[in-house]
Design a protein around this nucleic acid. Structure first.
Lengths: 204, 204
DNA sequence: ATCAGATATATGTCATGTCACATATACTAC
DNA sequence: GTAGTATATGTGACATGACATATATCTGAT
């Protein structure tokens, strides 16, 4: 499970409480990893029982006590080990594609509605990326070199979200056009595929 | 869970045994949905207890008996209902991006190795798509109209796999180049992002 | 002869993830 | 007053998924 390593990763930057971690997940890695609050607290407990993190109870005047977690040496070693080890391809689970796969059963209008609903959510996602990028750009003028270096990893994941989001939007838009134009045929789709695929030794 | 609807979808085409279903998943929808064999048998049992599928035991001379499942009227109705209802965006889980996000901790060579390992697996995937497309193209000349119509859904999911696979490959290749050239900076990545993003109301 | 592999179905168990709930305090808005 | 929101930490129950294992028969290779 990557959750424990994602948590160790955050803790390698600065100490976090469970509550902080939940917000960090929601704000910064939501587009490629989500974490349930219950899972975070349980994973912290598990990591502590394995000696990979330790915590300190901080009393606060106006709020409940916080349990501030930080990684141990063993925790950082486990993190670095995981970071440098490629993991097997993650299985994908795309309910929208399951619907498309069996879309022969529903009428073209219902299919078009599905495609448009999906397009809406991609547009929302791209807009959210745009807002986030704008807020980062505003911070650049007075950013330190250390901050810029630390942002490279997060920025790389952002470029992934944007590149794939744009590709997904373009793919949906193409389908939308074909559905509207009534030109959605097996031959057309095969030709599309052939045009996009790298040449698979066509000269034998 | 989409698994039960994916199963109903297959059964809406023709009767399947659990064993057949496992092979159908592995062969045709592997790139966007995987199914554990145990999950298939259990889900079939669950669907049957809800009256959405029924089965018939077929004795065979040379092999173990097969339990052939087919959908009931209620099952087909549940399928069509699900097919036309958009589902909320599925959470993504990308261990590779978690590694990238925290890649500031590891040295650039290790990061380059990670990127190249990922590129290898994308190339393999695209090659598999290419082979599959070639096999489909070979079948087109003597395909019936009914077959072509039935292939539209599956072909749509293929175009998704190829479009996103190509985008993912291109994104990885860009990072590989930037890592090799030593030009990976926060400024460059932000400029990349800005160039790709649709204009977010630049004129207020 | 024997062993691996394909066909075929099924259970047991563990890990993981999600949802709902429980507890407690303080600030803000109505 | 009191309802809602934010801070903060947790538990219990259930759903889902992955892995290992069990059974049984036939085919083909060594």
């Amino acid at each position: 499970m990557s959750l424990r390593f994602a948590i160790l990763g955050f803790l390698s930057v600065r100490p976090f409480s469970g509550y902080d971690l939940k917000r960090a997940f929601d704000q910064s890695v939501r587009h490629f990893w989500t974490a349930d609050q219950a899972a975070i607290y349980r994973t912290l407990g598990e990591l502590e029982s394995k000696g990979l993190v330790e915590h300190e109870r901080i009393a606060q005047d106006l709020r409940p006590d916080r349990n501030l977690f930080r990684p141990t040496e063993a925790g950082l070693a486990a993190l670095d080990d995981w970071l440098t080890t490629p993991s097997p391809a993650a299985p994908r689970r795309e309910p929208f594609l399951v619907r498309l796969f069996f879309s022969g059963r529903i009428d073209p209008d219902a299919l078009l509605a599905l495609v448009r609903a999906e397009l809406d959510s991609v547009h929302d996602e791209l807009r959210a990326f745009g807002d986030y990028v704008a807020s980062l750009e505003a911070q650049v003028p007075d950013a330190t070199d250390a901050w810029k270096a630390a942002m490279i990893g997060p920025l790389l994941t952002l470029t992934n979200g944007v590149s794939l989001g744009v590709a997904y939007r373009d793919w949906l838009t193409r389908i939308e056009g074909q559905l509207e134009g009534g030109s959605l045929t097996a031959e057309l789709l095969l030709a599309d595929l052939r045009a996009q695929l790298p040449d698979t030794d066509s000269s034998g």
